[in-house]
């Protein structure tokens, strides 16, 4: 995982502001690292095309 850019830091800060969550300086590096990891996983899921009829699994029955 490469070092987070200032753009990524700005994005994470903006998202935190949107949900009224203050990011302390001590947690920021760890949050950026974890956000980068989740963004990597999000790409893996989002690259998979799904039909419009595929609904979210709200009431999931295995």
């Amino acid at each position: 995982m490469t070092a987070p850019s200032s753009d990524q830091e700005n994005l994470v800060r903006a998202r935190a502001t949107a949900i009224e969550l203050e990011l302390s300086p001590t947690c920021l590096p760890g949050v950026l690292r974890n956000s980068a990891l989740l963004a990597h996983y999000a790409k893996l899921v989002e690259q998979h095309p799904l039909p419009d009829t595929c609904e979210p699994a709200y009431e999931y029955v295995p």
Partner: peptide, 20 residues
């Protein structure tokens, strides 16, 4: 915290993928 910051569209896509 990183989880709380995930966009809703990402979360919904995972739940749709789950059904697939």
């Amino acid at each position: 915290i990183a989880g709380a910051l995930l966009p809703s569209s990402t979360y919904l896509q995972t739940q749709r993928f789950r059904n697939w």
